[in-house]
Design a protein around this nucleic acid. Structure first.
Lengths: 178, 178
DNA sequence: ACCCACATGTAATGGGTTACATGATTTA
DNA sequence: TAAATCATGTAACCCATTACATGTGGGT
């Protein structure tokens, strides 16, 4: 009954689209600003079949083009319930997730302060570029969400740039990643 | 020559520890505040073998206890170079990664404003708990990093709580996850 | 002596990525 | 009409997770 994060996101996107083929859904994921899910066919097609077999989706075979078959999916009442459950899961929502910059900064005692500064500045610059790109989002709300997210990250980085860094942590049994 | 994020993090932790067995490394990952990498044996043991076969680690068979064998690993010069390369990769460091809360908020038009507020408040509460737990970190720098990260996130959530939310995005071909 | 927790792995499973195959539509 | 692109999948591979197996040392 519980959903993985990819399944939850897929149900959410599908709900927005109303009904869609696996291909259309995969395109949405591929177009997303995040690099985290590639939206590859090999991920989405089996995913949709799994969700359909769990009755969270209803599959209907429509021949969209010529005589070629395509199966379109729509969310069911059960699917909506599962999606709500995933959305409201505060336990999982408050996990730290994966943050490629944070993960690297854990080990920034292995580079020089100058290199650290260079890395942070480069990331800031790329965030700026991302923010302009994000404005192309068809969905204004998602664009706003990502934009505010990027703003907050930028100020975090600026804070990190302010304090030059602390001691090189060197412990036999250190707590670490990520 | 390029490292996955898990490989980079593993090399970083190993550098801190000086030299370690796969088991010790797996423990570090398992003890980490993030839920993202479980640090399961099935991930770490093959990982270390792969890195050793790429000459990024040097394996040495020492019998730690009784007559039972254990292989301990230490990073090589090549490994240090690869780690530096991964650390300084601004392109990947500036990716959006995976954020369980952000991913959910993309779909928050599917829940009521009251539910949204409840979710955000619960996440805030859990962040507070996490922040106190983080102080137990043996490594003060990692603790400080996570703590400032949590601070920034909290202020982002408070910003999201301030504006009640925008229009339900409803588009045929919406850009979306995550 | 026996049990339980720690230590060191291996095996089976699941699911995501890249690559491939093929049909349909648009474009040069 | 040939080439390029879009659409709809399938297959092989890689790797992380859960479970399992086994050895060792400490507690009772």
């Amino acid at each position: 009954m519980t959903l993985t994060n990819l399944e939850g996101a897929a149900l959410g996107v599908l709900t927005r689209m109303g009904a869609a083929t696996s291909y259309a859904l995969a395109r949405e994921f591929a177009a997303s600003a995040s690099e985290f899910w590639s939206g590859s066919a090999g991920a989405i097609y089996p995913l949709m079949r799994r969700l359909a077999s769990r009755k969270l989706l209803r599959a209907s075979a429509a021949n969209t083009r010529g005589r070629r078959r395509a199966t379109t999916y729509a969310i069911t009442a059960t699917g909506r319930a599962a999606l709500r459950c995933w959305l409201m899961d505060a336990e999982r929502a408050s996990g730290l997730g994966f943050d490629p910059l944070r993960t690297r900064l854990i080990f920034d005692h292995l580079i020089t302060p100058a290199e650290r500064k260079q890395l942070l500045r480069q990331v800031l610059r790329r965030y700026e570029m991302l923010r302009s790109g994000v404005l192309d989002e068809a969905d204004a709300y998602t664009a706003g969400l990502l934009s505010s997210w990027l703003d907050t990250r930028c100020s975090w980085i600026e804070g990190a740039l302010a304090k030059p860094r602390s001691r090189p942590a060197r412990i036999a049994h250190a707590k670490a990643p990520p």
